[in-house]
């Protein structure tokens, strides 16, 4: 098991390298270096350009150096936790990201939990009662959930909340708590708001996971070992949960590899629509204003999040499935 974990962590290194390289490439993609566009923007808005500051920035980021030096400078700072400066906000990227990243992680985890619990329960139901009315209803809702764009669902839910409950559900906090320090009250307030994004972000993932779970379990239910268990006189529920369920849940666990990127993706769009204080709107604005240090840093962080998530799920999988461990 230990060697397995070490190997998996070791595998992460090239992944992270490629990711950092891609992020860097995207940062570099807009024509001209960002400093030039920054100066152009400042001059256009009639602000004074501090030439000294510009020069020092140029030196810090090695903008006159070849790309690999720039990459090296960027990545070596990134590793030390210095993600550069946002030119739009004129503050270190790290300060901007801090709480928002925490909220993104929190929402993603919550959504993951929601997705798994709902998908597991419904998937099992729909496999065990295959072709029942309940199965058909769930399958239909699942397909609809898959086909409806995330942001539409957000708008529809907001509309319903607005019309039926008369509450405005944008954001993650009530105005009173937005800038307040963390207290129990603020947490409760967060939980009151967070369910809409969780449902919205989670729906597509839940819908596909239900199908995964249903298909897996149906496959497993046909396996001879289920008959073996029956032939041993094991009660039906135990024959279901001890064997096919346990086996079917394994590929389900590994879905985290694509579920997590999907959740973070979903979070970006939905939080723009719902104006949540997560990384989504920040990233979106950064892209629109070509604030590339911020955008690149965020992209890198989000990708690292998914890589870590995938690693955790792999370890979890190895822990529950001996076949993976012994491979």
């Amino acid at each position: 098991m230990a060697t397995y974990i070490v190997r998996r962590v070791f595998y992460m290194i090239p992944t992270l390298l490629v990711i950092s390289f891609l992020s860097f490439l995207i940062m570099q993609a807009p024509p001209g270096d960002f400093l030039t566009s920054y100066i152009a923007e400042l001059s256009a808005s009639g602000e004074q350009v501090d030439l000294e500051l510009v020069e020092s920035l140029r030196a810090t980021y090695g903008l006159d150096e070849p790309w690999y030096v720039q990459y090296w400078l960027w990545i070596s700072r990134f590793v030390r936790g210095d993600f550069g400066t946002s030119f739009e906000w004129n503050v270190p990227v790290r300060e901007l990201i801090g709480q928002r990243l925490a909220l993104t992680i929190f929402i993603s985890m919550l959504t993951l939990l929601f997705t798994w619990i709902v998908a597991l329960a419904i998937g099992v139901y729909s496999a065990v009662y295959q072709y029942s009315i309940g199965d058909y209803i769930v399958t239909t809702i699942g397909f609809l959930g898959l086909a409806t764009p995330n942001f539409m669902l957000a708008l529809i839910l907001m509309y319903i909340a607005f019309q039926v409950f008369g509450i405005s559900v944008g954001g993650l906090f009530s105005p009173d708590y937005t800038n307040a320090p963390w207290t129990w009250g603020k947490f409760v307030d967060l939980m009151k708001h967070v369910w809409i994004p969780v449902i919205v972000i989670g729906t597509a993932g839940t819908a596909s996971l239900i199908r995964v779970m249903r298909a897996n379990l149906l496959d497993e239910l046909k396996k001879p070992y289920v008959v073996t268990a029956q032939a041993k006189g094991v009660p039906a529920w135990r024959a279901l949960f001890k064997y096919p369920f346990r086996v079917a849940i394994n590929p389900f666990l590994s879905t985290i590899g694509w579920l997590l990127p999907a959740l973070i993706s979903g979070d970006i769009i939905v939080s723009v629509v719902l104006s949540l204080q997560t990384t989504g709107p920040l990233y979106y604005r950064a892209l629109l204003s070509q604030d590339m240090f911020l955008a690149g840093g965020l992209l890198m962080l989000l990708a690292i999040l998914t890589v870590i998530g995938t690693l955790l799920s792999d370890i979890l999988l190895a822990w529950v499935d001996p076949r993976v461990r012994y491979e």
Partner: peptide, 17 residues
């Protein structure tokens, strides 16, 4: 690696350039 990248942010970044 490509699959572990969150697609929407990547698309957004590419589309933005």
């Amino acid at each position: 690696i490509i699959r572990s990248f969150p697609t929407i942010p990547l698309w957004m970044a590419l589309a933005a350039i």
